[in-house]
């Protein structure tokens, strides 16, 4: 409601990968997200920032229909991926999630070996036709997850035995292994120490060469470091959306300014 349509023109330089129009989310009778319009560019890192409970995670989970697993959650409006409505009844959320992967706040490796963790996605989606191909995918994904050198000698040990930062990179590698087009990250560094956080941030920067990355974060510094575009959410509204530099140096909305200067949130 506060965003201006003109703003869009200013930022639409690259391809738009995903876009949301009039997106509303309800939990039972409570409205968690109000009228969000947003465009997510391809091969770009987009950061969602805002105070706790502002709806940024909820909105993120709409982008690959993870909210479908919550029975009382209802989504209205349209969200498209490459121009196709992802809430169309014909769309299978399973196929959608193969294209829009997700990494969660807490590292959640499956209680399987490192290899099987990575191979899980490719296996269920049938991406490998032979054992050798699968091995290749696992290696490639672990390399992309910047974890290969650390674990290549113990691929068949349980993934739960890794350190927190390694676990989170394992989860990222696991998400990357299914070759998604968009990667959603829900506060991926909030459970990690500063060194692990730096590693993950570096990784995100590399990932944007191949994927469009959307990251929800509590840390404004992190948003400033890794993202090219930033959206500021407040009380379920998208208050402001634009180039990261512009949001942090020259916010248009007073609430954005209050938030980044530390007066609210």
């Amino acid at each position: 409601m506060f965003d201006t349509p003109k703003r869009e023109a200013a930022v639409t330089k690259t391809d738009i990968k995903m876009s949301a129009r009039n997106c509303q989310v309800f939990y039972g009778d409570n409205q968690a997200i109000k009228d969000v319009d947003v465009d997510i560019d391809d091969k770009t890192v987009t950061a969602f920032i805002g105070p706790s409970g502002c709806g940024k995670s909820t909105f993120l989970r709409c982008l690959n229909r993870m909210n479908d697993t919550i029975p009382i959650c209802r989504v209205e409006g349209t969200i498209t991926l490459d121009g196709e409505d992802i809430y169309d009844p014909k769309v299978d959320p399973v196929q959608l999630r193969a294209k829009v992967g997700m990494v969660f706040q807490k590292p959640n490796p499956f209680p399987k070996s490192i290899y099987d963790n990575i191979a899980y996605g490719p296996r269920i989606h049938g991406l490998a036709r032979s054992r050798a191909e699968l091995d290749d995918i696992v290696e490639k994904s672990l390399r992309r997850g910047a974890l290969w050198d650390e674990v290549k000698d113990r691929l068949h040990e349980p993934g739960t035995g890794l350190s927190g930062g390694q676990q989170q990179r394992l989860c990222i590698a696991r998400a990357v292994a299914t070759e998604p087009e968009v990667l959603l990250m829900d506060e991926p560094c909030s459970a990690l120490d500063p060194i692990a956080t730096a590693q993950v941030e570096e990784l995100i920067d590399e990932l944007k060469q191949n994927f469009s990355v959307v990251i929800v974060t509590h840390s404004m510094q992190q948003a400033a470091r890794v993202s090219q575009k930033t959206a500021f959410f407040h009380l379920g509204n998208l208050v402001e959306y634009g180039e990261t530099g512009q949001i942090f140096t020259n916010p248009r909305d007073p609430r954005t300014e209050s938030y980044i200067t530390g007066r609210i949130g």
């Binding site: 969660f104 959640n108 499956f110």
Partner: peptide, 15 residues
């Protein structure tokens, strides 16, 4: 079994 494991699997597109 923690919900996080379910989310992780659904997030990868598992049925």
């Amino acid at each position: 079994v923690p919900q996080a494991l379910r989310d992780g699997s659904y997030g990868l597109g598992a049925t």
